[in-house]
Design a protein around this nucleic acid. Structure first.
Lengths: 215, 215
DNA sequence: TAGATTGTTAATCGATTAACAATC
DNA sequence: TAGATTGTTAATCGATTAACAATC
């Protein structure tokens, strides 16, 4: 329900707020001011208030923000109040690692199947592994919200096309290629090498070390 | 050797240029204009020229940019002209996946060892797995440029401290915590959950789909 | 030479920061 | 009530875009 267009910069900060709020809640902290929250995340208080103001503002003058309430509001904004069914296409190193990661479930992200061209085992970490041939049928018969692409870059575009043709609207892409997808399909890229290259750059140019943990 | 301070936005685009240049080179394309390059990466020609101008400018009026030359310049800027020795701390799903990934070597990133508190095997993918106890000694006796943190979030800060104490200056952090590190230590975070949450947000708010593949 | 395209300066746009009235 | 802190408007800063002279 954002009124104006929310900027990319704000969107990227939302998960960080959410994580911090969760952390505060675990510590039993019930209220927080924009100043404190900003401090924790290396932001400014103005930025924090502006960000929340985009969505209506969830605080109380003279008090601050109720941690539990703000966390819940952020969960709704991020869409974490519902469950997601995911599949992984590509059962290589990364695909198997994601299949084995236990932390997604608690936020409502459930991985229901893996697909690959080779299927040496029947399941990985209790998640069934199917042949790519059955992808279309599977997507027809199951309600999948997000497809994770962990195939090699050479076939990533083709796989993305296939997924979109089968009605997938959200793609989490780990392949180092720009998938240009039709309107209405959203994509989020994890580019390990780009991240590593940025680290390499920073290693070379050690300065402006004042601002840390920005991304 | 950047004259002015290079902005974060520019730095994040550098690996994307590099990847694109590599791709063009593989296709046998020898020259490219800022307009074309911008098109390929969903940027503007001005942005492309400004970005390169930050580092001196590598083009030629009336011609454009020599693909091989520009690629090499970017490699130097990113620090990819030298080799890096890496270790992985945390041999869980992600640590093992990274150890198994074959793509880092070609860019000079060599993973030389894994560390964990449990060592059920001697090596993973031909990379030796050592006990955490021997971390300090190992770092003393080997020239390690980058440490990858793939331990659980509960111990990530402690591990980071240990690494920094042993002289590590660059950390690639996969744990979902903000490591606040002393000046002179650089960090780059890969936050899977934050990325997934952004995807979730976008799934909810399907609009402004005009600009794709931005990150 | 004429055409193309860079490097770079100036203009614009948008995000961050500052300020403060509203109000709990 | 007095103190604290938000929500929101205005000011500032920086990044993107536009423009064009330089030049290959």
């Amino acid at each position: 329900m954002p009124k104006k267009e929310i900027s990319e910069a704000v969107i990227k900060r939302l998960p960080r707020y959410y994580r911090q709020l969760k952390h505060l809640q675990e510590q039993g902290i019930e209220k927080i001011s924009s100043t404190k929250l900003a401090e924790n995340l290396n932001l400014t208080a103005s930025q924090v208030r502006q960000d929340f103001c985009n969505f209506g503002g969830f605080g109380q003058q003279g008090y601050g923000y109720d941690v539990a309430k703000l966390k819940n509001e952020l969960a709704v904004i991020l869409g974490l109040d519902k469950n997601f069914n995911l599949i992984i296409v590509g059962a290589g190193n990364m695909g198997r690692a994601l299949a084995g990661y236990k932390g997604f479930d608690s936020d409502g992200f459930v991985i229901s199947a893996l697909f690959d061209v080779v299927t040496p085992v029947e399941s990985i970490n209790n998640i069934p592994l199917y042949n790519m041939d059955s992808l279309e049928d599977y997507l027809k018969n199951n309600n999948i919200d997000i497809a994770i692409i962990t195939v090699q870059k050479q076939v990533a575009k083709q796989v993305a096309r296939e997924l979109v043709d089968c009605g997938i609207k959200s793609i989490w892409n780990f392949a180092p290629v720009d998938l240009d997808l039709p309107k209405g399909v959203v994509v989020e890229n994890i580019s390990l090498k780009e991240s590593l290259f940025v680290l390499s750059y920073r290693s070379k140019n050690i300065h402006n070390q004042d601002e840390q943990n920005i991304d």
